[in-house]
Design a binder for these strands. Structure first.
Lengths: 234, 234
DNA sequence: CGACGGGTTGACGGTTGTCAAACCTTGTGG
DNA sequence: CCACAAGGTTTGACAACCGTCAACCCGTCG
């Protein structure tokens, strides 16, 4: 238990704890555990009992689902101060996804038992959880619809736009993504193969829309991608 | 408000109200509104303010999302005693989908304002809501992964299996679906076109797996569909 | 240096979407 | 009762899209 650590201002920004008074936040912080996790390790695997809720403090994590045939799908990249494994708020389930830490990171976590106590003391948390989950549902439904109706090129454009709006860094020219992102990762986020991603990215590079390096992508013209994502055909 | 209506036993089975004592259920029932809705009308449209939570008492409803290009995707068919528009539990949002009533039905509903009061009185509802939403997220994520990794034939098999497990009726030979279900509907549930659905269904009919009539499908061999869904290639 | 992991490119073909035409079923109105 | 319209379905031809596979390139690291 961490009781000398200063209350990080971001704690009140976490969807689950929004609107809580400061004493409650202190209480919550004192019941949290913090630890470092290194790149390529897993916070949890798909199918594990969902017994911990995590919040990323530093670093990146990716949430993926693996099919019975072994194909992997990336549902989401998580940036600092996002909740991971929100499912653990209600005990008794198992994680439907696995969470792989994409670079050296720090996380804080709460066990389901601790969360139960917090839920008792601060009923607002349950309301917040519902709101967070309903947003989560919305996002996932939108992803589904895009996957069902768009062609690969549009989906890849949407994927990149989502990434830069979530964690892109403004630059002189366009937006940069500071995460290591292989073609394979992009493929697994867009429901396609790394070959197709490679081809599309090269084509876009020739058109001056992006700069694609090894495990790196910079979006030079977000607007250009919007045009593609909407299928406005120039 | 309905205060002479007997407490329907199913009320306690609704995910949101599970575990509540009988007086609470009576209270909840008294704050509900019931009405008939006729086929092809809408409970709500995508983009409307999410101000009512519905429960289907009789009939069928489909939840769909329409893209900016006008393509439709069906996210789910709802059977009696399923919740619709669970998003309305937390006020202030807009429906991300629209709900079309697929046959003459009866629904009960609660406005967000009423729900707020219920949430105050029975905090368990918030917990239940979280649990329901997290299931919802799980389901949607699974749909997404299937759409991202499977070929049309497998997805269509999964769609049919989902439908019969949700509301199929056991029969001498296989399972019947008593809903009107066009090829177009199946296409919008599986992320494909009605032409492809038609072809696959005819092929399956020749193999004796299904019987496909106008707006009707009977699954004669669920097991056969499982084989296809898993891509076991005979 | 050689191994390795990520990336690129080309050839090929399967899966599916697109479109047009015709068919069938159902319900309606004369 | 028939004719007709409307909507669901089938089928074929065609081609676009995109996945598969093999070969190769390139930079990094031990």
């Amino acid at each position: 238990m961490a009781d000398r650590i200063a209350l990080p201002p971001q704690l009140s920004q976490i969807p689950l704890f929004q609107g809580l008074p400061e004493p409650a936040l202190t209480d919550i912080l004192q019941h949290s555990q913090a630890r470092r996790v290194e790149k390529d390790s897993f916070l949890f695997m798909q199918g594990d009992p969902a017994d911990h809720l995590y919040v990323l403090m530093e670093g990146r994590a990716k949430l993926c689902q693996v099919t019975s045939e072994g194909q992997q799908v990336i549902l989401k990249f998580a940036a600092p101060w996002e909740m991971i494994g929100g499912l653990a708020i209600v005990g008794g389930g198992i994680y439907p996804v696995c969470c792989m830490v994409a670079e050296d990171s720090r996380v804080m976590s709460w066990s389901t038992t601790v969360l139960e106590g917090l839920l008792q003391r601060y009923p607002l948390i349950a309301i917040n959880a519902t709101r967070w989950m309903s947003n989560h549902v919305k996002e996932t439904q939108q992803l589904f619809t895009q996957l069902a109706t768009e062609r690969v090129e549009q989906r890849l454009a949407h994927t990149l736009l989502r990434l830069i709006s979530q964690m892109g860094q403004e630059q002189a020219e366009g937006m940069a993504l500071d995460i290591t992102l292989t073609r394979q990762d992009l493929a697994e986020m867009s429901g396609t193969t790394l070959f197709t991603v490679s081809r599309i990215l090269n084509q876009w590079e020739k058109q001056g829309l992006v700069e694609a390096g090894r495990e790196r992508v910079r979006v030079k013209s977000p607007h250009g991608l919007v045009v593609i994502a909407r299928d406005l055909k120039l």
